[in-house]
Every structure is written in structure tokens, then in C-alpha cells.
Simulated assay, not measured.
Amino acid sequence: MALDLRADVVDLLGSIVDIESVSGNERHLADEVESALREYPHLEVVRLGNNVLARTGLGRAERVVVAGHLDTVPLADNLPSEIRTVDGEERLYGRGTCDMKAGVAVALSLAAELSAPSRDVTWIFYDNEEVEAARNGLNTVERERPDLMEADFAVLGEPSGARVEGGCQGTMRFTLTTTGVAAHSARAWRGVNAIHAAADVLERLAAYEPRKVVVDGLEYIEGLNAVRIHGGVAGNVIPDRCTIEINFRFAPDRTPEEAERYVRDVFEGYPIEVTDLAPGARPGLDLPIAQEFLRAVGSEPAAKYGWTDVARFSARGVPAVNYGPGDPLKAHQDDEYCAVASVRTVRAALAQWLGGGPAGARTSGDE
């Protein structure tokens, strides 16, 4: 079914959701997005793999990026989408409604309508965000067309409850292995139990007190937690190895190198293998363009707990925020949904910011 970008934004969202696009299977949706955007002569459309970009070229004083990922986590028997009213709230249910096809629908709707925005806009729709960072479609864009990532400000349409979430935490995953000596469990005194040796590591984690820090006016709370543990060979063997996987979520005032030094200090005496490390992003909300954005959308900002692709833009010197429809707590859940009112609120706010119109700017299909 072809996407109609002139349709009411909620109807458009339903159409996007019903095109299944689990990570790695975005081609069909990317084809439809590309085809729909090419109908609009005010947009230059670029296709890079399963990443679709469209931009205006009006010579405005500022350029902004509005971006969203096309992929979802695996299905849970939650397609096709359906509208339900629960406790007086109209909601669209289905995989990806919240994370983050609602943000994609808003961006596509505005990309089609705003032929002469107050700022030049680069709209980015990319693949493979929900999987390991190495597969993220923004890597392809940065490698093949880095110029398309250049901007004065960026907005990621991740679900934020129609509230601006500034910056993001950095994330680090690492493994820590304790060793022992294998033996028959009937003669345990002949061995050294590596699982028992892990007790000291777990005690250090239990004693950890989360650091709180204010960065650019927003409070971030760090977290250091064991997320997986593995050890043992059989029910009658004293284990000689135990591996603990630990996740450190650090505030954006730390560099990745500082985060790594910190955890090595916490676990001094143990060998650590870093398996994943991504920097956080400072909010940058003190900049004039960010302040204007906050005024336009009428939102009090909050810190982003978690990692998002705002960090990619921040690393390029582009201040970025998360702002999109949907309750982030519903992301990835089997009963995932997005409130219809949230979709309309975000669309109207972005239309005001980009179009310079009144707060109640027309949304497609409202006539």
C-alpha cells in the first residue's frame, strides 16, 4: 500500500506501522518512503541502502536535521495496527507505534507539507537502530555522504511523551571474569570455585551509589549494574570460570575514556574486557537555536535516560535533542501503543517551529 503523505497524520502512522520493518527487513518500508517523498519537487531525495534522506535547499540561514529510524524490534503478534479507546484516551496499538514510527509519521507528514520552512531541513529516515551500533544506518550516511549530517541543530523523534529530552547518557558494557580451579564437587577442597570468587565483584556493585550530576541544567543519574552472569560446567564440577557482564550508564560530562578509567578503578584487581562503549551527548540547551526550539514546542526539558542517536550528532558538533510522540515506557512492549493526541501535539509543535505559524498550525486531514 503506497504511503499518502497528505493523509491525516494518524492514518499515515497506521499505514507505516502495517509495513513490517523489523531490523534488517526495512527495505519495503524504505521503498515506500522514498517513493512518497519523490512526489514533492521542493525536496531533494537521496537513497543510501535502506536509508532515505530528503532535504530542502532554500538558502536559509540555518539548517536543522529531523531524524527517525524505520526499524522495530521483533513482532509479538501485534500487527496489524488497531485503534482503541482506553480510559477515554484514543490510542493506536501495534509494533512500532511508539518506537518510533509515530515520530517517523510526523516527520514524513511535515516534510511533504512544509515546502518553504523557516529553516532548511534535512529529513533522515534510517535503518537498523534497534540492533548493534555497527549496523546503524547513520554509519552508512556518515561514511558515504557526511555532508548530509551537517546542521545547526538536530531533533530525533524518539518517544519522549511530547517532552524535550536533552542529550543522552553514555553506555559501556564490559565483562569481568573470575577464575578458579576445576574439581569434582565431591572433592570440592581440591578446587577453587570461580562463582564464589565473584562474590566480591557483586558486593562492589551492591555498594555502588549512583552519581548524580547536573549537565547544562539537567540532572543525570548514573547506573552501574550486572546484567548477565555465566559460570559452571556441570552439576558435579567445581567451576573454574565465572563471567559477569556489567553495564555502566554514565552522564554526558564524562568522556568514554573517563568512564572506562572509572570502572577500572571500581574493579581494581580484576581484568576487564570492554565489549561496547558509546559516548553520551551534552544537551546544548543553552544555545540560541535550542532555546528557540524549547519556546516553540512549549516543553520543559528533562534529561534523557538511555542512549540515542543524538550522541552521533553531538560528536559532530551538532546539538541535538529527543522530541517525539509516545510514552517511552511502552517502547518494545507487547502491548505497544501511541496516544493519538501525542502524535498531533508533536506535529503541531514542530510545524510551528519549522513553519513559523501559530501553535494551532493545521495538520493534514483536519480540514
Results as ranks from 00 to 15, higher is better:
D4L: 03
G94D: 06
E165M: 14
A76H: 14
T122K: 12
T177K: 14
A259I: 00
G157C: 13
G14C: 11
K212C: 03
V274Y: 06
V66K: 12
T122M: 09
R84E: 02
P80W: 06
C168Q: 03
D253T: 03
H28E: 15
R344G: 10
T345I: 03
R228G: 07
S299W: 01
P256C: 06
E219P: 03
E26W: 01
L75V: 05
A315R: 14
V213Q: 06
T72W: 01
L354F: 10
C168V: 00
L205S: 01
A134H: 14
G284I: 00
P239K: 13
F125H: 04
F267W: 10
L176M: 02
R143A: 13
D335L: 07
Y305D: 11
R38T: 06
L354K: 02
G49V: 00
K304A: 11
G235H: 14
V106R: 02
E260Y: 01
V155H: 01
P283M: 06
V266F: 04
V22I: 13
L218T: 08
R119H: 14
D152Y: 08
T308V: 00
V274L: 08
D31H: 02
V346I: 01
Y126P: 00
V45E: 10
G24E: 02
N50S: 14
R312V: 13
G103T: 06
E158I: 00
A76T: 15
D276K: 14
F293H: 12
A361P: 05
